[in-house]
């Protein structure tokens, strides 16, 4: 009886500690975001800093995005054809591929890949800069590491993700075309024309862009914060990198549901 009581209080106590800890980190992350946002105007005046990071965050992620986009488009085309052909609707293949990509897979898969490729690299880089006292050194040189190091990386991520998502969708459509028109003999004219007439700018493209902007903000925020908040040891940086990928992926999937529900608006 007594042992069971202790067990119960232990569980409660640990639960409380976890909740408090999580809340505290969330609070710190929010304050950190505010601090970064207040540094944005200063950084915008030094565009070169952002451009350098755009290269590191964007260009180096480009290849994996293009290759994945190609394959996702090809698979969509294959799967879609097999279903559509049962209803004699294979002319709509282009439309289906485009809508899936632009509204859903483009932003989501890009964000997941971004978190794994660029986000983890950002966290590791910043965490190591902290562990090797580079950030402290910068502070002692009267240079604010938040505006000099973190904000440019954050902004680069926010700008890069929507661009990468757009490229992902574009390449995916091409991949769908290769499979659908090239291998499955769907009529090229209807593949494109159905897509052109039925993909709506506002409900489809704009909503996809909004998603990718939101994902860009969230993924970059998590990556930069985890790096800055990392315990300054090799183990701490490894854990932080890990957390970046896990938290980014979970946030992207959860936010995707929320954003979709909001834009479709009929739940």
């Amino acid at each position: 009886m007594n042992a069971r009581l202790t067990l119960a209080t232990d569980v409660l106590r640990n639960l409380g500690a976890v909740v408090l800890n999580t809340l505290e980190r969330l609070g710190r992350a929010a304050l950190f975001l505010v601090e970064m946002l207040s540094g944005v105007p200063v950084v915008l005046r030094r565009f070169i800093l952002i451009a350098q990071q755009l290269y590191a965050v964007g260009v180096l992620t480009l290849l994996i995005i293009l290759v994945s986009g190609m394959f996702v488009g090809m698979v969509l085309s294959l799967q879609g054809y097999n279903t559509l052909v049962k209803f004699g609707a294979e002319e709509s293949l282009g439309l289906m591929v485009a809508l899936s990509l632009v509204r859903e897979l483009g932003p989501v898969v890009t964000a997941l890949l971004f978190a794994g490729r660029a986000g983890s690299a950002l966290t590791a880089e910043i965490g190591l800069m902290k562990a090797t006292e580079q950030l402290a050194g910068m502070e002692m040189m009267a240079v604010n590491p938040i505006t000099r190091v973190l904000v440019p990386r954050f902004l680069a991520g926010v700008v890069a993700l929507p661009l990468l998502a757009a490229l992902f969708s574009a390449v995916g459509v091409l991949g769908g075309h290769v499979v659908g028109v090239g291998m499955l003999d769907v009529d090229a004219g209807s593949f494109w024309s159905q897509m052109q007439t039925n993909v709506d700018f506002q409900t489809d493209i704009l909503n996809g862009v909004i998603k990718s902007v939101v994902f860009g903000i969230v993924c970059s925020w998590i990556a930069v914060f985890e790096g800055y908040d990392a315990v300054p040891t090799s183990e701490g940086v490894a854990r932080a990198t890990n957390r970046t990928v896990v938290y980014s992926s979970l946030s992207v999937l959860a936010l995707d549901f929320i954003l979709t529900a909001l834009t479709l608006g009929d739940i």
Binding site: E133, G137, M141
Partner: peptide, 18 residues
């Protein structure tokens, strides 16, 4: 920060930007 412009600290590790 204004004061720090007039002082410098040499860290144990050097803390060069890699």
């Amino acid at each position: 920060y204004e004061l720090r412009k007039r002082m410098a600290m040499l860290f144990q590790s050097g803390a060069l930007f890699t």
